[in-house]
Amino acid sequence: MVVERHDLDGPDGLDALLEFTRRTWTAVSRWHVGDIAWTFGQFNGPAPGTRTSMWREHGRTLAAITAYGAERQDGAVLTFHADQARPDAADTALTWAKTAYPHMAVGILETEHHLGAALARAGLRTDPGDDGPFFLAHRVTLDGTLPPPKPAGYLVRPVHGRDEIPRRAALHRAIWAPSSVTDERYRTMAARPPYRPEFDTVVEDPGGELVAYCLGWYDEANRAGLLEPIGTLARHRRRGLARAAILATLHAFREAGGDTAIVHARGDDGYPIPRAVYPTAGFTPFARTRVYR
Rank of each mutant, 00 (worst) to 15 (best):
D127N: 15
P148Q: 14
L94I: 06
L155Q: 15
D83Q: 02
T92N: 00
G107P: 01
R167T: 06
A242G: 15
P274R: 12
T289G: 15
T26W: 03
D9R: 15
L247H: 03
H81V: 15
S180P: 08
P87R: 00
Y101G: 06
T126F: 14
M1H: 02
A287Y: 08
A120C: 00
M54W: 02
Y271N: 14
R266S: 13
I108A: 07
P147T: 14
R237H: 01
L17A: 10
R5H: 07
I246W: 02
A97H: 03
T249P: 00
Q73C: 07
T289W: 09
P178H: 05
Y292V: 05
T126N: 13
A93W: 01
P87G: 02
G10Y: 11
S53Q: 04
I246L: 08
A93S: 03
A100R: 14
H172W: 11
T201R: 11
L94P: 03
S180M: 10
P102D: 13
G132D: 13
D9T: 13
G216R: 13
R5K: 15
H103W: 07
P46K: 03
N222S: 12
E204F: 08
V159Q: 13
R51K: 14
S179V: 01
D200R: 02
G45D: 08
D74T: 14
G225W: 09
P285N: 07
T232E: 01
P193G: 07
A100Q: 12
A212L: 12
F286E: 06
G129F: 10
T145F: 02
I36D: 02
N44Y: 00
D9Y: 07
P151K: 02
A100E: 15
A67V: 09
T289N: 10
T260Y: 10
G282I: 04
P87H: 02
P151W: 08
D143F: 08
L233S: 03
H114E: 10
A97P: 02
H114V: 05
A261I: 14
H113R: 14
A261R: 10
G45Q: 04
A67L: 06
L155C: 04
L78V: 06
R243G: 15
F40T: 00
D131W: 03
M104W: 04
H264S: 10
E164A: 15
T280V: 06
G153L: 12
T280H: 11
K150A: 14
L136D: 06
Y195P: 00
D205C: 07
A82N: 05
D7L: 14
E184W: 05
E220F: 01
A64D: 05
D259F: 05
R5N: 05
G116H: 11
D205Y: 07
F80G: 08
G34V: 14
W176I: 00
T126Y: 13
